[in-house]
Design a protein around this nucleic acid. Structure first.
Lengths: 161, 161
DNA sequence: AAAGAGTTTAGAATTATTCTAAATCCTTGT
DNA sequence: ACAAGGATTTAGAATAATTCTAAACTCTTT
């Protein structure tokens, strides 16, 4: 488990390593994404951030998100015909999109399976990332698969479970 | 291999089975998607269709695409922050998005692997579909992985290879 | 041939995202 | 401390993709 100030320190380090500046806007955007382990859209993030920093603009939120994705602090998730969502879970995992509730669940992926996935690629194809999305119904499941208290974090990228 | 008229017959059957009407617009949209084994956007499809049916509207193309997806005659593919693409290949397969050229390649998926993917789902999660997308570089590869002449078709849904 | 459902059409509306140019904020050299 | 210069933020305009709307059209059935 890591504290907000540890996350903030990591953010600062990553930004500086990439030749970028640690700004209050980048920090608060990152913070609200980590606070809640869901998959918010840019607009949702904008709404959450505004309560803490009422003067921030939507364009800045988009800029910050782009920066955070670049620095590999968050990932981008796209579902069919829906606004882009952002995911703080950097652990290798799949997404399950519940078509009934619209909820997105993180699904753990065994490392061996990920390796196997890469083996399906013909010679010459080098994948830098894989995205696996299931669509269907999660019968009676309202809880996230990865509870917040053992979820992967910056300083513990693979989680405690 | 199947002929255009066989495809058209299948389309008609599927539509009628779903209580929908086989219309000239639906037929021509389906036809242009099958003609070229790529992953066109709605706009690209609109452009191709217009040469054969100049009066068709973009809204109709969107309507037809929705219908075809519903009838499981084509699939929808979404890449990050990019317009939706449509795929005539119904064979279980992954997509490889070449970030250098922007091209999308179909990647064959062994049936066992697909089964394994479903096994990662916790109890209660029933997936009706899976989407697997790789992102990276396809060194020097300009040919599609599934050549058109043995690609899966309506009457031969798993292809000849 | 009238009724009624399904479909198409053009254009407006909406939504998500990116662009632009001016203002502001840091950092660094002096 | 202070000016220069690059990085960042801001508001609002612009763009792109998609969906909506309402009228017209077209089948099919009576």
């Amino acid at each position: 488990m890591n504290t907000p100030s540890e996350n903030s320190a990591t953010l600062t380090k990553r930004l500086i390593d990439s030749g970028l500046r640690p700004t209050a806007q980048r920090e608060v955007v990152f913070k609200v994404i980590l606070e809640k382990r869901d998959h918010p859209t840019a607009d949702e993030i904008f709404a959450r951030v505004k309560s803490q920093m009422p003067t921030i603009s939507l364009a800045t939120v988009y800029n910050c998100l782009e920066t955070l994705v670049q620095c590999q602090l968050i990932r981008q998730v796209n579902l069919e015909r829906a606004p882009t969502r952002y995911c703080p879970n950097l652990h290798q995992h799949a997404h399950f999109h519940d078509e009934t509730t619209g909820q997105i669940h993180d699904i753990d992926l065994p490392i061996e399976l990920v390796a196997q996935l890469h083996h399906v690629l013909p010679a010459g194809f080098i994948a830098s990332s894989v995205e696996l999305t299931f669509r269907g119904d999660a019968a009676g499941t309202a809880q996230p698969t990865v509870p917040a208290d053992c979820a992967p974090t910056l300083n513990n990228p693979h989680g405690t479970n």
